[in-house]
């Protein structure tokens, strides 16, 4: 067990995800690519489930050298990577592949967006997969209005989305959803995507799965300490860049695999699938001013937030026709029709 690896670079990766999640599997494949390309001179040590650094501390820890690489969730990035949180805005796209490509293209094309990363001393390597937002419920809901009065586990901007239809957003860790649902402490949950349900035991306890039309809202990315990256020989940098470029593909593959497994489990448990009507979703979206709030909040802090939002929407519009990827939630829905 005490084998002296002798690698030239030993990189510590901190993640809040579990070792078996689709997100960790992507990073494992990425790390394997790099180790192979560098003949083992660059190795990655994994610290899963927040065992080294909590989710909220991940970015700061990468900056100050407590870790080298970290998974950073957009929900924790408002103070440090403000412009990156544009990807939290709901109702933008239902296609996770488009969403992931947009995250990277903004980094390449938007100065304002990239500056945050440079100021924090981290380099964005690649986004990790996150599916379309779903709502799991213990009793059916045909329209967004049916959510009124229900306590629903939610986080981030999704809390405000369901609040707009009279639901009580309840903040709780994903680990507590199962128990709370069983006991009726909440009557539903969201802010989680279909491929992640099995990890939290939710495929057995969700009677109804609704596609609320929110689409992909939220994301997480893998970042590396910029100074460290730049201190590496060019060949290692190249190995990292190549593996990172491949990781978007790994992302959709791993998400599909996890999504298919989740879908099978849900079907076996007799879960009913439904989706809110487009017209209802449009009304819902119209009642919210989340884009405007986001722009206002960050313009107050001196960002050209409107510019970043416009770029984001523009890129999504360009990417949509290029991708025929279907999110696991859609795929699972489709199977029921």
């Amino acid at each position: 067990a005490c084998s002296d690896s002798g690698a030239e670079y030993t990189l510590h990766y901190a993640t809040y995800s579990s070792p078996t999640s689709d997100q960790s599997k992507v990073v494992q494949r990425w790390a394997a690519d790099i180790e192979e390309a560098t003949n083992g001179e660059v190795e990655v040590i994994f610290h899963y489930s927040g065992s080294l650094i909590g989710a909220e501390d991940a970015l700061q820890a990468t900056l100050d050298g407590r870790v080298d690489i970290a998974q950073v969730g957009s929900i924790y990035a408002a103070s440090d990577l403000s412009m990156y949180t544009v990807v939290d805005l709901p109702f933008k796209t239902k296609n996770p592949e488009v969403h992931m490509h947009s995250i990277m293209r903004l980094y390449e094309e938007s100065e304002t967006y990239r500056e945050d990363f440079e100021r924090q001393g981290v380099k964005l390597m690649y986004p990790l997969p996150l599916g379309s937002m779903m709502i799991g419920l213990s009793s059916p809901a045909a329209t967004p209005e049916d959510l009124e009065g229900r306590s629903i586990r939610a986080g981030g901007l999704t809390s405000q989305v369901i609040l707009a239809r009279g639901a009580n957003p309840v903040a709780m860790g994903a680990n507590d959803i199962y128990e709370s649902l069983e006991r009726g402490i909440v009557q539903g949950y969201t802010s989680i995507s279909l491929p992640n349900l099995p990890a939290f035991g939710l495929t057995r306890s969700t009677d109804y799965v609704v596609d609320p039309g929110i689409g992909v809202a939220g994301s997480s990315i893998v970042v590396i300490n910029q100074d460290l990256y730049e201190s590496m020989p060019e060949e290692y940098q190249q190995a990292i860049d190549e593996a990172s470029a491949n990781s978007l593909q790994y992302g959709t593959e791993e998400m599909d695999a996890a999504g298919a497994a989740a879908c099978t489990e849900l079907r076996e448990a007799g879960t009913e699938f439904s989706a809110f009507e487009d017209a209802d979703v449009e009304d819902w979206r119209g009642d919210l001013a989340l884009d405007q709030d986001w722009v206002t909040e960050f313009e107050e802090r001196g960002y050209d937030a409107q510019g970043v939002l416009d770029d984001f929407e523009q890129i999504i519009a360009e990417e949509e026709p290029l991708s025929d990827y279907s999110a696991p939630l859609n795929a699972c829905m489709g199977g029921s029709q």
């Binding site: 408002a78 103070s79 981030g156 903040a171 802090r301």
Partner: peptide, 15 residues
């Protein structure tokens, strides 16, 4: 100092 300068907030709905 860092929390103050960065305007660090909680990540829930109340910020």
């Amino acid at each position: 100092t860092s929390a103050f300068e960065r305007g660090e907030t909680t990540s829930g709905i109340l910020r």
